[in-house]
């Protein structure tokens, strides 16, 4: 029940990451190693690689007996999967209704200005990627920012600078 959940950094050495991915898959019995493992496998892969480059998608496809197109189709359907490398810190503005009516729009505008990037973008120094979520169930604390899984509550544009400074 640790408070700030730290995301493991993307594996530096791809071969090791591939090995770990294989180990994850090998953990399941062969009759389960089919399409139904696709989303868990992609989640694991993204955890290991930071994003889902084509070689990783093909690897997962081969391991689960799927076509490359199917894997790509799934990877591009869900918000959580990134095909491009992300920044060191991922900022998600909550755009759920309660956050929206409590000022998330202004917060997003301020973040765009501050970082000079749009939703889906990454700063040139790879420090931040900017994304959005549609409610993480912390509406009571609206408007919120989620940075690397930590929730910042009652955020106003004025508080932004201090919050961002916590993420070098």
């Amino acid at each position: 029940m640790a408070e700030p959940v730290t995301v493991p950094p993307p594996a530096a050495e791809p071969a090791a990451a591939f090995r770990e991915l294989d180990a994850f898959l090998a953990h399941f019995p062969a009759e389960l190693r089919t399409r139904t493992l696709l989303i868990p496998a992609l989640q694991k892969a993204q955890e290991l690689f930071g994003h889902l480059p084509p070689a990783v998608q093909r690897h997962v496809a081969a391991a689960l007996g799927l076509t490359a197109g199917e894997v790509y189709g799934v990877a591009t359907f869900y918000h959580y999967f990134h095909l491009q490398p992300q920044g060191r810190h991922v900022i998600n503005v909550c755009l759920g209704t309660p956050c929206y009516v409590k000022g998330a729009r202004g917060l997003l505008a301020a973040l765009r200005r501050e970082l000079g990037i749009d939703l889906g973008g990454t700063t040139p120094d790879r420090r931040f990627s900017l994304g959005c979520q549609r409610c993480v169930g912390a509406c009571v604390l609206a408007p919120i920012l989620i940075i690397d899984q930590k929730v910042h509550s009652y955020v106003t544009p004025k508080k932004l600078a201090a919050i961002l400074a916590q993420y070098p």
């Binding site: 591939f18 009759e31 089919t34 690897h59 081969a62 391991a63």
Partner: peptide, 15 residues
């Protein structure tokens, strides 16, 4: 394949 399908685990049961 840049990284061949995992060799150490048996192939998936059915597609």
């Amino acid at each position: 394949e840049p990284f061949p399908p995992p060799a150490n685990i048996p192939p998936p049961a059915a597609t």
